[in-house]
Every structure is written in C-alpha cells, then in structure tokens.
Design a protein around this nucleic acid. Structure first.
Length: 166
DNA sequence: CCCTGATTCGC
DNA sequence: GCGAATCAGG
C-alpha cells in the first residue's frame, strides 16, 4: 500500500488528533505501526503537542546502575528459629557470583557486604521463577505474622530481591 | 506481556 | 522513500 495524498492526509489528521501509531495503522489498514511511525518521522511531524520531553536521552549507552542495594540485615530471632529447622546450606564456591554473572535460576540471596570485593550471591538453584533457592525463600518470605503481633509488624525481615538484570 | 515512539539500515 | 527489526521505556 502506497502513501497516497489521501492517506498521508489522514495520517496527519489522526496523528494530530493524538492517536497512537498502532491505532492509526489499524484504522487505516494496509500498514503496520512501524510504517506509520516511519512515515510520521519522514514527514517531520514526530513529537506531538507538548509532551515536554526531558531532552534527547534516547538511545544512549546505558550505564548499568544496577548497584546492589542488598543489605545483610542481621538475622532476627524469628529468622533464627526458621534457620534451626532447615537443612544446612551446602557451600558452593560462589564467591565469583556477581550481580552480572548470576543466572536467572540462581539464588540471589546476597552474601557479604555489597560494597566489598567478596560480595556475592548464594547461587544455588532457584526454581519456579523465584529469586531465591528453597532455603532462602523461606527466609525471605516469612509466613504472615500471627494476628497477635499484626499491629506492630513491618520490616520484611530481610533483603529485598535483587532486581535481576533484564 | 502488553503497549509507546525512536532509530537503524537493507531494500 | 519505505518499513521490519530493534531498541528504550511505560
């Protein structure tokens, strides 16, 4: 399908009305949203009414600011009790697991000081899309506190999942 | 995973 | 000029 006068006309109109590229593509037919966007750009009418863009930040080399914000919160009594009933955690040679080398199926429980050289992750098998291995999942996802202390509950006992590098 | 626009580049 | 592929982001 070619961009005839009429079609370009309608494109301009719809775009000006604020329809998205995909909406325009669907309405006009014969073109994909990519085609629409491409045309919009070539017509020089990109950027609609005052979205107030921050400034050309598009497509810049992205610095991975994925600084591990993990904290090795000291284990609290409640956690310790859980710990007691769990099988010992076999120590993998995990000192090399860094935020960038850890796999999606590896436990991301932080070990050590994030600011330290030897900071690493547990690294044991983490299944079901969980960020932690079975062992650490039990620490991370503490059962709901008994309705008794409901009121004073808060502070999720431990480290929040490290955001996997997507 | 759904969507958005932006950019690149072979055609 | 065109638009699919790809990217970056919401």
């Amino acid at each position: 399908m070619a961009w005839t006068e009429e079609r370009v006309e309608e494109l301009k109109k719809l775009w000006a009305e604020g329809h998205s590229a995909s909406q325009i593509a669907a309405r006009m037919g014969g073109v994909t949203r990519n085609a629409v966007i491409g045309k919009v750009h070539r017509l020089g009418l990109s950027g609609r009414a005052a979205p107030a863009k921050p400034k050309a930040v598009h497509h810049e080399p992205r610095v991975s600011a994925a600084v591990a914000t993990a904290s090795e919160a000291p284990e609290r009594p409640a956690v310790r009790s859980v710990l007691r009933d769990l099988p010992p955690l076999t120590d993998l040679g995990s000192s090399r697991l860094t935020v960038s080398s850890i796999g999606t199926d590896q436990c991301k429980w932080p070990i050590g000081d994030p600011a330290s050289e030897d900071f690493h992750f547990c690294g044991q098998g983490a299944t079901g899309g969980k960020p932690y291995c079975a062992y650490h999942s039990q620490l991370a996802f503490q059962p709901s506190t008994s309705r008794k202390e409901r009121k004073s509950r808060e502070a999720p006992a431990l480290p929040r999942p490290i955001r996997a590098v997507s």
